[in-house]
């Protein structure tokens, strides 16, 4: 089963003056199971819009979106909220950890917002943090962690709900080159170990070497 199938997806924003802006134009993309795809494009090209639609954050104007066999094209807000809780993981550009929660709690917060499995979530958070090399940093607040450690916590959070698809939004933009490469290696290893698919949104072509393939997007149009 493919992790993601986008078919002829369009997203049109209506601006304040009534004019329409096409952010995504007839985008068709398939991400296979266990595949890591780099979505490369300049600012304003539509890559964040595509990522948001694939993750159930935005609804498309038209087109079909199937994530791990689940057709979310016509989902309403409530269904999309549940879908995000259970089926996808996000790593945001500025990491965006909850500042007053420690590393472990930043992972278990996903459980608190969703199914509330309690002890199971605690065990999974411990396991993920150990695997991410943060076993001794579980009680540290984000402010007590380095940039790379914070990024690893964010990756752990994205993996908490055992998603089929993880969306990385510019995961290395706030890191220096060396740390960025370490993080990309970590992302690749973690995704491949788990058989989880990923889309890595970036405008930095250097990190595409860590992905299975690259897809370029310009002015809302996808090009392989």
């Amino acid at each position: 089963m493919n992790a993601l199938e986008l078919s002829d997806v369009r997203k049109i924003y209506t601006m304040g003056d009534g004019s329409d802006v096409v952010a995504l134009d007839h985008a068709t993309l398939t991400v296979a199971d266990d595949e890591i795809v780099a979505l490369v494009g300049p600012s304003g090209s539509g890559k964040t819009t595509l990522c948001s639609i694939a993750g159930g954050i935005l609804s498309p104007t038209e087109g079909k979106i199937v994530v791990a066999g689940e057709d979310i094209s016509d989902y309403g807000d409530k269904q999309l909220t549940k879908f995000r809780q259970e089926s996808v993981g996000f790593v945001f550009q500025s990491v965006n950890l909850v500042p007053f929660l420690n590393a472990k709690e930043n992972l278990t917060v996903v459980d608190e917002l969703g199914k509330r499995t309690g002890k199971l979530a605690q065990q999974r958070a411990d396991l993920l943090l150990d695997e991410l090399g943060l076993g001794d940093r579980k009680k540290n607040l984000p402010s007590q962690l380095s940039g790379g450690q914070r990024q690893r916590v964010a990756i752990g959070r994205a993996l908490m709900n055992d998603p089929k698809l993880v969306l990385f939004d510019e995961p290395t933009s706030a890191l220096d080159t060396e740390l960025g490469e370490q993080v990309m290696e970590l992302i690749r290893n973690e995704m491949k170990q788990r058989g989880t698919s990923a889309i890595v949104v970036t405008h930095d072509t250097r990190i595409t070497q860590y992905c299975d393939r690259s897809v370029h997007i310009i002015d809302g149009h996808l090009a392989a």
Partner: peptide, 16 residues
């Protein structure tokens, strides 16, 4: 607002 945006992206309901 940005924190709430993140929590919503992670699946938090507005009422939560």
């Amino acid at each position: 607002l940005s924190l709430y945006g993140v929590l919503k992206a992670l699946g938090a309901k507005s009422l939560t």
